[in-house]
Design a protein around this nucleic acid. Structure first.
Length: 212
DNA sequence: CGCCTTTGACCTGCGC
DNA sequence: GCGCAGGTCAAAGGCG
C-alpha cells in the first residue's frame, strides 16, 4: 500500500518588517490579524468529511526577501497570490476548505482543489508552464473563465482561472490533477515533493501522516 | 520556427 | 428528446 499522508503547505509572504524568516501556525494567525496581511480563502470542491486544523500545515517564507511580489512556486494543487500560497498534496487525495482567517481545513478524497485569493493578477507564476487552451463565459458571471493545461509533455494537469463573480478582486483558481514532473524549484519533505520558491525555507511546524 | 494566445465551433453531461 | 451550460478542440495569427 502506498503511504497516505495528509499534507498541506502554506508559503506565507509576510511584511518586510517580519524578523522571522520561518513561521509556524501561530505566526500565521498573528499575521492574519495584521492590516497589511490578508489571508486568502480557498475552497473545497469535492465533498469533504475529514476535518483537520491548520496544525497539519507547514509554513515557510523567504528568508531574505519575505515579500515576493508575484513569484512563488507551488505543486499541482497550489496557488499563489501576493499574500499567501497554499499547497495541497493531491497525490494523496487531499482537499482543503477554510474561511477567511483560515481556521478550518478539510482533507478528503479527490485531486481537485480550488483557491479563492485576493489578487490583481489573474495568472500568477506558480513555477510551472501553462498553456491556455480555452476561454469561456460563465452563466451569471461577468468574468470569463480561462482554461490552462500544463505545457510539459505528458502532463495532464489542468487549471481553471476565473474572477469571483461576487467580488472581482478575488481570483478563483482550480487545479485538477497531479504533475508527473517536477517544478524547476522543488524540495522533498517526508518523501513528498514540495514546490518551494528558490531561496525559500520550509519549516515543518506540525504534520501528521500515516503509512502502511 | 516554435510556442503561445485567441476564439468560434464542437462535444458532452445534465436537467426538464 | 431538447436545450443549456461547461469543457475541449483546433485553426489562425502574434511574438520572441
Amino acid at each position: 500500500m502506498a503511504a497516505s499522508t495528509s499534507l498541506a503547505t502554506a508559503f506565507l509572504q509576510v511584511p518586510n518588517s517580519n524578523p522571522n524568516p520561518t513561521l509556524n501556525y501561530t505566526d500565521l494567525m498573528n499575521y492574519s490579524h495584521q492590516p497589511e496581511f490578508e489571508l486568502s480563502d480557498y475552497l473545497l470542491l469535492e465533498d469533504g468529511s475529514i476535518e483537520d486544523s491548520m496544525s497539519s500545515h507547514h509554513i515557510g517564507c523567504h528568508p531574505e526577501n519575505p515579500v515576493l511580489p508575484e513569484k512563488a512556486i507551488t505543486d499541482s494543487t497550489g496557488y499563489t497570490t501576493n499574500s499567501v500560497t497554499y499547497v495541497a498534496d493531491t497525490s494523496t487525495s487531499s482537499n482543503i476548505k477554510c474561511k477567511s482567517g483560515v481556521k478550518k481545513v478539510k482533507m478528503d478524497v479527490g485531486s481537485r482543489v480550488a483557491f479563492r485569493t485576493k489578487s490583481e493578477l489573474e495568472v500568477i507564476d506558480d513555477g510551472f508552464k501553462w498553456r491556455k487552451y480555452g476561454k469561456k463565459t460563465v452563466k451569471n458571471s461577468p468574468n470569463p473563465r480561462n482554461y490552462y493545461r500544463c505545457s510539459s509533455g505528458g502532463c495532464n494537469v489542468k487549471k481553471r482561472v476565473e474572477r469571483d463573480r461576487e467580488d472581482s478582486r478575488y481570483v478563483i483558481t482550480t487545479y485538477e490533477g497531479v504533475h508527473n514532473h517536477e517544478s524547476p524549484c522543488v524540495v522533498y519533505y517526508n518523501e513528498m515533493p514540495l514546490m518551494v520558491p528558490s531561496g525559500w525555507t520550509l519549516q515543518a511546524s506540525h504534520s501528521h501522516s500515516s503509512s502502511s
